[in-house]
Nucleic acid binder design. Structure first.
Length: 171
DNA sequence: GCCAGAACTCTGG
DNA sequence: CCAGAGTTCTGGC
């Protein structure tokens, strides 16, 4: 498998976008380019990685527009491996409207599980490789807390604040 | 390989 | 407060 990736500046730090010929396979955020590349290499150790700052430009632009509130929809081709359970959870996440949030328990309920499956849902969110395309930051805890965030709670807070400032109906 | 425990949780006792 | 629920992953044996 051949993966091309690029790393650009974003309001939330350095943004890595990696894609196969079929679609995006990874999106992640970090302060350091080196860490981003190391994590990509670890997750796709069998793939042939090569940096290409032009080929994914269209998708990078879409993500940056999304981060700055220019667009609220991301409809990008994805090429990710996932179990049935993860796919179902991610579908639910993508169904959450921009600027809105769901609790982990609500997501479990929407999938036909009881709210006790909330923990499994949280874990499925945490293992999502395309953080912004699948908006796992819109999942929060039932007690109003943010829960955790794989790419840093600060980024989760920033994303939610950004979305709420664009969609002022949801406060 | 198998089992225990953890991971972005929540509810009921 | 503690345990258990539903799934996946990791680490110890």
């Amino acid at each position: 498998m051949r993966i091309s990736y690029t790393i650009v500046d974003s309001p939330l730090g350095r943004l890595l976008v990696a894609a196969t010929p079929r679609g995006i396979c990874a999106v992640s955020l970090h302060d350091s380019d080196a860490v981003l590349e190391a994590e990509l290499a670890k997750d796709y150790s069998k793939a042939e990685l090569h940096r290409d700052d032009t080929v994914n430009q269209e998708w990078v632009d879409a993500l940056l527009n999304y981060l700055s509130g220019v667009t609220s929809d991301l409809d990008l081709p994805l090429d990710v491996e996932a179990t049935d359970f993860q796919r179902k959870v991610w579908d639910q996440l993508r169904a959450i409207p921009y600027g809105s949030t769901r609790t982990y328990g609500e997501l479990a309920g929407a999938l036909g599980y009881s709210t006790t499956a909330a923990r499994a849902v949280g874990h499925a969110c945490a293992t999502n490789p395309v953080s912004l395309v699948i908006p796992c930051h819109r999942a929060i805890r039932n007690d109003g807390g943010l829960g955790g965030y794989r790419w840093g709670l600060d980024r989760k807070r920033a994303l939610l604040a950004q979305e709420r400032s664009v969609d002022l109906l949801f406060i």
